[in-house]
Nucleic acid binder design. Structure first.
Length: 461
RNA sequence: GUGUCCAUAGCUCAGUUGGUUAGAGCGCCAGAUUGUGGCUCUGGAGGUCGUGGGUUCGAAACCCAUUGGACACCCCA
């Protein structure tokens, strides 16, 4: 039989082959660069969020969420038309009325938009906000780089002072400490000056490289036009030599910026935060000015940034607000998790079961249902496989879920009004009166290990 | 956007210079053990060899395309 031939010939019966999912690995799979976050990794996210929230609240920050998409112009204007993010990494689409919208590639721009839109200049200053949100960038996936990723970040808007910069860095540093990776990271810090002096410097660099293009790589030629400061970062051998006699930013930075920077470094030293003063650190977003910083794992080749930030004093004005100074920080949770895993940091899981209820027979099942419910209400994490038959299977399941205790109720127990409590780690068990089961179980688990949910408690996810 | 490597069972991987019925370990299911998990033993299920095309008497293997993955560049979190 030549079924293959039939499939491939223009058989009139199958003219419209539904090839929606043709060529995919499994029939359906996630698009490139995005993935499911499975339970094992949820523990990491939960843990990081908990630490981040705690540290932020401690420092007076409040949480903000901006929409997943904004008008494209918000990002274009802020991040800079010529930057990689805007020129090739945005998920941009049109709505039904032809307006251009973009999935947020970062949050600072959106928060500044929100600052203006919601009149936050009338709030007590500085306005301190933090966020934990998914972001989207159309890039080739790589280690620690995905098309959807979570970012935690914070912004301090409305004041400018070296102590604020140091405080922002301290907060980031404390969070890395709590996460157990501070020792693996080193702060890189630089001051890239204010916009006017940076412009003058960029022009000076252009003048310098003009006529020397033949020594530049193709990449660096593009940089010469787009962002000459980046040439200083080049890995091209000829360029490195050329760079040695290039104009130095030191000679262009304003006195104010310089003393500002020195003051920031002093504060950091006082706070006991080690840093590398790195004058090649240039961030790729246009809105940065003055202080910029990143946290790098220097042991790993390259400059794998686990987080970074900087001052963006001109951004709010650029978006149509009154001139307002600000500083911010952001870290990618996926990169942080990777860093934690590399360094064998363990996170607690709140999902561990306390007790598994196994039952045998219809009568027993009837009793188990309210029992399970009561246990849960008392804060005991309880599971019951009410569908499964043999008690053997049920114990097996309990074992696989690593339940430390099991409650067994069969026909005998129903008749006698009792229940068996089995200690799964010791392998011992005892029979108790049905009316006492809940108390006995709680006694064994320990009151302080219980998991309470109080609907009246305002602090919930 | 550029480059390099990769794709075989749920997972980790074997599969000889192209050769007839594609294997192992772990995991899963069942039994040994009809009211007791873990350990052991026995058996079982599970594969369009990512997808499409080509070369060939014959393709998991060779070629092309495509989808996905890993890594580096670029850039960034």
């Amino acid at each position: 039989m030549s079924t293959d031939e039939q499939k491939n010939s223009n058989n009139p019966v199958t003219e419209e082959d539904d090839s929606e999912d043709a060529g995919l690995n499994p029939p359906f799979q996630t698009p490139k660069g995005v993935h499911d976050i499975l339970p094992v990794d949820q523990d990491f996210y939960t843990y990081i969020k908990k630490i981040v929230r705690h540290r932020c609240r401690q420092a007076g920050f409040r949480r903000i969420s901006t929409p997943i998409f904004e008008f494209t112009e918000v990002f274009k204007r802020s991040v800079g038309e010529a930057t990689d993010i805007v020129s090739k990494e945005m998920y941009t689409f049109e709505d039904k009325k032809g307006r251009s919208l973009t999935l947020k590639p970062e949050s600072t721009a959106a928060i500044c938009r929100s600052y203006i839109q919601n009149g936050m200049q009338n709030w007590p200053q500085p306005v301190e906000l933090y966020y934990i949100e998914p972001h989207f960038r159309y890039e080739r996936p790589q280690a620690g780089r995905y098309r959807q990723f979570f970012q935690f970040g914070f912004e301090v808007i409305g004041e400018s002072d070296p102590s604020l910069d140091a405080q922002a860095i301290l907060l980031a540093y404390r969070i890395y400490q709590d996460l157990g990776i501070a020792d693996t990271l080193r702060l890189q810090i630089n001051n890239i000056g204010d916009l006017p002096s940076r412009k003058i410097y960029a022009d000076a660099l252009r003048d310098y490289y003009y006529g020397k293009e033949r020594y530049l790589s193709e990449e660096d030629k593009v940089r010469l036009v787009k962002n000459p400061l980046r040439i200083l970062d080049s890995k091209n051998e000829d360029t490195i030599i050329l760079n040695q006699s290039a104009p130095k930013f030191k000679d262009f930075i304003s006195k104010e910026s310089q003393s500002y920077h020195e003051e920031v470094l002093e504060y950091l030293t006082d706070l006991g935060i080690n840093f590398t003063s790195n004058d090649t650190l240039v961030r790729g977003l246009d809105y940065y000015s003055q202080t910029v910083f990143e946290f790098w794992d220097e042991k790993r080749g390259g400059q794998n940034s686990v987080g970074g930030g900087g001052r963006y004093d001109g951004l709010i004005e650029l978006l149509g607000g009154v001139p307002t100074p600000a500083i911010g920080f952001a870290m990618g949770l996926e990169r942080v998790i990777a860093q934690m895993k590399r360094n064998k940091v363990r996170v607690p899981s709140k999902d561990d079961l306390h007790v598994f209820v196994a039952q045998l027979g219809r009568e027993a099942k009837k009793i188990c249902l309210p029992l399970i419910n009561e246990l849960r209400e008392r804060g005991v994490k309880t599971m019951g496989a009410l569908g499964k038959g043999a008690i053997k299977n049920q114990l097996k399941i309990a074992d696989r879920f690593k339940a430390p205790f099991c409650i067994l109720i069969g026909l005998t127990e129903v008749r006698e009004g009792t229940a068996i409590i089995r200690d799964m780690t010791l392998g011992t068990q005892s029979t108790v009166k049905m009316s006492r089961v809940v108390e006995e179980v709680i006694k064994r688990i320990g009151q302080k290990n219980l998991d309470f949910y109080n609907p009246k408690d305002p602090v919930n996810e």
